[in-house]
Design a binder for these strands. Structure first.
Lengths: 228, 228
DNA sequence: GACCCCAGAATATGATCAAATTTCGCAGTG
DNA sequence: CACTGCGAAATTTGATCATATTCTGGGGTC
């Protein structure tokens, strides 16, 4: 993601090592990304200090970072909440995701090793399982994991960072869609991406990624044209 | 850029109204963007509390935000410094800026009014004056101002936010280049952009923007291939 | 309906604790 | 005798917390 490279991030396992504000940031980030916080929901400092059993300063800093990430919005009057996506936002997200994530797919295709591909296939298997069992949080987590792992092999930290930001923006809304329609409506487009990786065909990877992005954004768009 | 909409941001004019952390953030941001802080330079929280005569908490939050912006880097061991651009970074920045800023130019061309164009021409005039007088800080400020004002008319907050982030990344390095070569080496590409705007020709605007972006990035690239 | 007061939450401060880098001294060697 | 390398103390810096202050929002009263 941003700077934590070690794999140990299961809640507060090695709690003594990482600074508190970093731990709080990761937890809050995950909650937003995987939709545990609904769009429009208010986020208060004191609420989080109680919920996460953390001090006030770490919570403050985590909130600031997430506001800067676009994962939370500052409502002017000292209020902070989870953002609500608008149709105009979706248009921007489609453009930005297409260009950036397709390029990342291209770059990753060049650099990726056979072992990396096997790892991605493993993630995709877990993803399929989550879809078939209707495990929404699992689906969101594995889907994000797939993209993040892929982009990690692109060797493009700045673009990867931009992509991460975009995901934070539509994460909450995506969760809402899943809650309404379930996971069945998401045919898995990752198979095409994996095939392109195996063939080492950058343009095919970019094309497959574009379809995946468009589909995801279409789902989000549908979700917000339906109920609020 | 992120949430302050009012025009009053001349240092600490209405100092009593804005929260301290916001003021600190703006000041630090400007210092980074306009190269008052050199790449690689260490940034200490206590140093800033003394320099900006602010409390510790506001400075902390500002630093966190700027780290999230990519304007500062967290060196792992609690140290924070101004990032040094690498050739690989430049390649990424070129791609990202081309796609995003060209699109913003396209969108702005559609929405912009005649009055907005006049305002941009005024900024460009100031820019010319800064170039001819060798006023490096003025050049950087007006150049940034031109792009920001233009993107503001694109009506695309998410893309604008991404573009802002990219500027923060190469700001310090651009300053280094100016310090070494002066402002003379920057022919003003904005004339073409203005002409495209007047003609309401989105593709011409995008093309002119692409040239401007490429030129800027080339300068940065030259700067870091020369001395460190 | 407008105004005032109060409660609650966010902002900001300074103190205190923990960690890391730096520096200084000592010993061993050429 | 000078120089280099290691190690521990000291200083510098960051992280966290408890507390005071300020501001926003709501409810009650005139």
């Amino acid at each position: 993601m941003t700077e934590t490279s070690s794999s140990a991030q299961t809640a507060d396992e090695g709690a003594a090592k990482r600074p508190a504000h970093e731990a709080v940031y990761q937890q809050l980030r995950a909650q937003i990304l995987f939709g545990e916080l609904a769009p429009g929901q208010a986020v208060t400092i004191q609420g989080l200090t109680a919920a996460l059993d953390a001090g006030m300063t770490p919570v403050r800093e985590a909130i600031r970072r997430l506001i800067s990430d676009g994962a939370l919005v500052f409502q002017g009057n000292r209020r902070v909440s989870v953002p609500q996506i608008t149709p105009a936002d979706v248009k921007e997200l489609i453009f930005a995701r297409k260009t950036i994530e397709c390029e990342l797919a291209r770059l990753a295709t060049v650099n990726i090793t056979d072992g990396d591909i096997i790892e991605l296939e493993r993630i995709d298997t877990d993803l399929d399982r989550a879809i078939s069992t209707g495990d929404v949080p699992g689906y969101l987590a594995q889907n994000y994991s797939f993209h993040t792992a892929l982009y990690g092999h692109a060797g493009a930290p700045i673009l990867t960072d931009l992509a991460d930001r975009l995901w934070l923006r539509f994460g909450p809304s995506l969760r809402v869609v899943c809650g309404r329609f379930g996971t069945q409506s998401f045919p898995d487009r990752h198979k095409d991406i994996l095939e392109a990786l195996r063939r080492r065909d950058p343009e095919m990877a970019a094309l497959a990624m574009e379809r995946d992005v468009c589909q995801g954004m279409e789902q989000v768009s549908m979700g917000l044209s339906e109920g609020n």
